[in-house]
């Protein structure tokens, strides 16, 4: 393909990314480094701050007067357990919302909606967790992660301290993200990488692989060119980005295992129907 066409594709995917995803990497990094004019995020680092911040989880705008609320008293252990479950449910509803954002992004990839509808479902089902992990990375640093559109920062130690298996879900994602963030991709690079992941022709059960591979090949060319122009000093960046796809598959396998464990041990837990569809029979 002509270089000009590949640049148009990169621009188109970047625009779609900006349109569909509410928190960009640029904004997340500004919040994490304190270089934003907005208020600093509310920090959740223990059960008390979780109880205080709980009602604002998944709010796009944190009410100003509520940010400095204090003294909720000690949380009893049974209440703690409920609090963990409620927090997990709100994570699920944000994840379901993110699934719909990713679906809209996928539909904007040129040629995607012309694929067999069953194959569109398969690509999204198998690519979704990988895409969500990549999208989570810019929100993370070694100490924690932004949630609720960047309104809240939750510490890694606190997440780790949640009762099993809740405490185990995020740790491998933190390990991956810290390494992935070292590649220093920006939002325009991320848009291309997400499209490459979605257009994986080796997902189980695909009916018509060839047109998917053709689409992916085109996005790969576009990403290779874009990375060279956007990061002229970063050697082998294209290859390094592609290598991350292997790590992603392992992360998904771990995620599925933990979710399975939850299903068995947490009788009170009810998985969001959209997430159930994605998780069911996944590997």
């Amino acid at each position: 393909p002509e270089a000009a066409d590949l640049r148009v594709l990169a621009k188109h995917l970047y625009e779609s990314y900006l349109k569909n995803f509410p928190l960009t990497k640029a904004k997340a990094r500004a919040i994490l480094s304190g270089k934003t004019s907005d208020n600093a995020p509310f920090v959740i680092h223990d059960m008390k701050s979780l109880a205080e911040g709980e009602q604002f989880i998944n709010c796009r705008q944190l009410p100003r007067q509520e940010q400095r609320r204090t003294s909720m008293g000690l949380i009893q252990s049974e209440l703690q357990s409920e609090l963990e479950l409620r927090f997990f449910r709100s994570c699920q509803s944000r994840s379901a919302e993110a699934v719909s954002e990713v679906t809209e992004f996928a539909k904007s990839i040129p040629g995607f909606v012309n694929l067999d509808l069953n194959d569109q479902v398969t690509l999204l089902k198998y690519g979704m967790i990988e895409v969500l992990i990549i999208m989570m990375s810019p929100l993370m640093n070694k100490d924690g992660t932004l949630i609720s559109y960047g309104q809240i920062f939750m510490t890694r130690e606190f997440i780790k301290s949640l009762r099993k298996p809740f405490g185990e879900i995020m740790e491998p994602k933190f390990e991956f993200s810290v390494k992935f963030n070292m590649l220093e991709l920006d939002d325009s690079d991320m848009a291309l990488f997400l499209a490459v992941i979605i257009l994986s022709g080796d997902r189980p059960g695909l009916l018509n692989v060839k047109p998917i591979e053709v689409l992916q090949e085109n996005v790969l060319h576009s990403m290779e060119l874009h990375l060279k122009m956007n990061h002229p000093d970063s050697l082998q960046l294209f290859a390094k980005v592609l290598q991350k796809m292997t790590d992603l598959r392992q992360l998904v396998a771990h995620h599925v295992q933990v979710m399975q464990l939850m299903k068995e041990t947490e009788i009170d837990m009810c998985l969001h129907p959209l997430l159930q569809e994605i998780m069911k029979d996944l590997y």
Binding site: S93, A96, E97, V99, S100, E101, T103, E104, K107, V113, L117, N118, Q120, V121, T122, L124, K125, G205, P273, L274, E277, I278, K280
Partner: peptide
């Protein structure tokens, strides 16, 4: 496959519906 993934299918066919979320 479409039958087992009704919400995903619906999201693919229509624009985002808050009802599903």
């Amino acid at each position: 496959l479409k039958e087992k993934h009704k919400i995903l299918h619906r999201l693919l066919q229509n624009s985002t519906s808050p009802v599903d979320l």
